[in-house]
Amino acid sequence: MKSRYESAKEVFVDSVDLDDYIELESSLTAYQQLEHSINKPLKMILLFGRPGTGKSILLNRLHDRLKYQKEIYYFDTPAINEKEFFHKIFKVLTKKTLPQNTEVNFSALVNYCKNMRGKREIIIMLDEAQMYSPEMMEKIRLLSDSRAVKFIVSLHKTEDEDLIAKEHFQSRIWEVVELHNASLKDQTTYIHKKLLKKNLFEIANSIKEKNFKLIHKFTKGNYRECNKMMFTIFEICEYYDKNEPSKVRYDRIPKRIIEMAALKLGYINV
């Protein structure tokens, strides 16, 4: 049988799995904003946020919730080149696959979209959009001008927003939805719910309020960092449990282990 810590550890493997989606105050707000924007006559919507704030999982959630009501598509990783990208778009629009060695005629595609106007409304979500070149973004914009295809563009801002947030996005996108790092409250809920989903009640109860505060301090409320942190904490617990059981207690998580995890991850240094 798996040790309790092993199961706990696995809960925090970074993944964008919809079954793991957790309703949090911040994600709910962003979700509602997105849903609201979709119903407005906008052409492009920007989903903005630091890496690891939950953009991808939110887009997946939106897709899952709307897929029976709307023609909605999710492109997870950006296409390697324009050709591949327009093949994908072509497939979405016409529901036909283009033979490998053919190329999409862009102006024909735009015309196709124009003809669709009023008949179909297609939503395409582009994740990791910072990977698209300006030329490609320009074409995406032209497609959206047809008003038959609406794009939700997700991109992250880093410490240096300029690297990613190309100015041309801002000037042309009409609605911006932003995701932030979690508040202490949201992060606590997040950790709790994730463990409870896997029936790890005891583990969930062993993390006390001051532990949550410390974890929040180290991870600054970032979900991805939080995952890494929790994974490492339970990894250390698991090790002790197997090798030096005197160093762990099932009813609480020692502060020492949290600090060790923080050292391991470089949040603090000697």
């Binding site: 250390i236 002790y240 000697v270």
Partner: peptide, 18 residues
């Protein structure tokens, strides 16, 4: 798994430094 003893040492140094 990484070497836990090294991590423990590091933690002790961290505590001492603090």
């Amino acid at each position: 798994m990484y070497n836990i003893e090294v991590l423990e040492e590091e933690w002790k140094r961290y505590k001492r430094k603090k």
